[in-house]
Amino acid sequence: MNARRRAESLLAALCLACIPLVLLPLPAAARAAIVLPLALLAPGVAVTRTLAVRDPVLKVVLAFPISAALCVLTAQASLYLDQWSPRAGLVVLLAASGVFLLREAQSSDRPARGRKHAAR
């Protein structure tokens, strides 16, 4: 298992492990310290994983803005659909990121689509 796969698996595991943290009645400060950074990182990392670019700096740069934009999208969708539930929204974001990253980590042995032509 290479370093990237290990990092992705770890991030995926953290995302999935944080779901009970969000749902259980734990102290808010502890939850915020763990879940907030993850929610602002993991969705972006999951999306950039789909990009066939070998540009780690760009992936790092994109992670936070994409996560923030996805949070905006999720929150606005819940408002417009009149289904406002912050915990559910956060769980959906974390679960989707975790599952996606886990799947990508498992399948990273196979050549990714377009990787042959990937940019530097």
Partner: peptide
Amino acid sequence: PGFFSAAALLTRGVG
């Protein structure tokens, strides 16, 4: 409300 709702989702989501 995009920024405010996203911040509300994150802060309320963690309690």
